[in-house]
């Protein structure tokens, strides 16, 4: 049995893991699933209206620190690698998760990252041993504002390199959607005992909002699914993508707009302020994308009642340098 088959088998038998004692035979068994869900934590002092309860789904409790751990494992263990090097564009979290899993499998990996991501993420990727390629956002006219994605596309399609590289391609990989449909969605439904009224998530690769949205709508079509995007193309919300104004060929192919009821735009300032307020009033240190999503939920709280779940993709620690810039200017 190969390393990959061994890990897949262990994960499939995860229900045999003892989550009470929390003893595991490899790190990937810690990746969240309905038997081992990430926590749902209520926002208290940062919520303007307690009749609109806001719960954060804290995905930083995955072993490699973000929501991307879920999809990275599925995509990598399903990929026909055939001796090639794995390569993926990432604003950090997918790259970190893929690298950790690739390391556990003994697979070489290269990650293309936008130059503008926090230094902490680049250091972490290099610490993990990934070959990190930094790409200027304007590098490729085929992928305007997404140079890293363009670079990986070129590695996969150039005659000179296509036999060397293989990519999970989270933007087009249906496992990205399927993983959330099979794990994150059922977790939220079970953790809220089916009482969820609103679900808030960001647009990025769009696997999260599509997979969870589809699952929740199937349980109760009245649940409102709200998508959050930056209010400009030039933003400091790594992992988040502005969908509005993008040409169809640049919108992630896995996005299913039919499950989304409303899209809301958020500024960097509001996103960072919400994240900082949450840390200072509720003691929950989250990344700026969580701040963006939470900000929209807080606006809903002023005029709505019910139970809301906000996806929190990761925590604050990988963004210390970004927060430093904001805190120093306030």
């Amino acid at each position: 049995m190969t390393n990959r088959e061994t890990l897949m088998s262990k994960k499939q038998n995860n229900n045999k893991s003892n989550h009470d004692l929390r003893v595991y035979t490899d790190i990937t068994q810690l990746i969240a699933d309905p038997d081992n869900p990430t926590p749902l934590v209520r926002v208290n002092r940062s919520n303007p209206n307690q009749e609109f309860q806001i719960f954060l789904k804290l995905e930083s409790y995955n072993p490699f620190g973000s929501i991307k751990d879920r999809i990275a494992f599925k995509m990598l263990t399903s990929l026909e690698i055939g001796g090639k090097t794995v390569v993926e564009p990432s604003s950090g979290n997918t790259g970190i998760a893929l690298t950790c899993i690739a390391n556990a499998l003994g697979i070489p990996i290269e990650i293309a990252v936008p130059e503008k991501i926090p230094e902490e993420k680049k250091v972490l990727l290099k610490f993990l041993g990934a070959n990190v390629m930094e790409a200027d956002d304007a590098l490729c006219p085929l992928f305007p504002a997404e140079g890293a994605r363009g670079l990986v596309n070129a590695l996969i399609h150039s005659p000179a390199t296509k036999d060397t590289y293989v990519s999970p391609n989270q933007y087009e990989n249906n496992l990205n959607v399927q993983t959330h449909y099979q794990t994150t969605g059922p977790e939220i439904w079970k953790q809220t005992q089916g009482k969820i009224d609103y679900f808030f998530a960001g647009y990025g690769t769009c696997g999260t909002i599509t997979g969870i949205g589809k699952y929740l709508k199937e349980q109760n079509p009245n649940i409102k699914i709200i998508g959050i995007e930056p209010d400009s193309m030039d933003h400091k919300l790594p992992g988040m993508k502005r969908i509005t104004g993008l040409s169809e060929d640049l919108i992630p192919k896995i996005l299913d707009r039919s499950v989304i009821d409303e899209s809301v735009q958020v500024s960097d300032e509001d996103a960072y302020s919400a994240a900082i307020e949450l840390a200072r009033k509720d003691g929950i240190p989250v990344g700026p994308t969580t701040g963006a999503i939470l900000y929209v939920a807080q606006q809903y709280a002023k005029t709505h009642k019910g139970l809301a779940v906000v996806i929190s993709p990761d925590d604050a620690f990988k963004y210390a340098s970004f927060y430093k810039d904001i805190i120093n200017t306030k």
Partner: peptide
């Protein structure tokens, strides 16, 4: 044998 942006790099 290199497509954009590898050719540009």
């Amino acid at each position: 044998n290199y497509v954009c942006p590898l050719s540009k790099i």
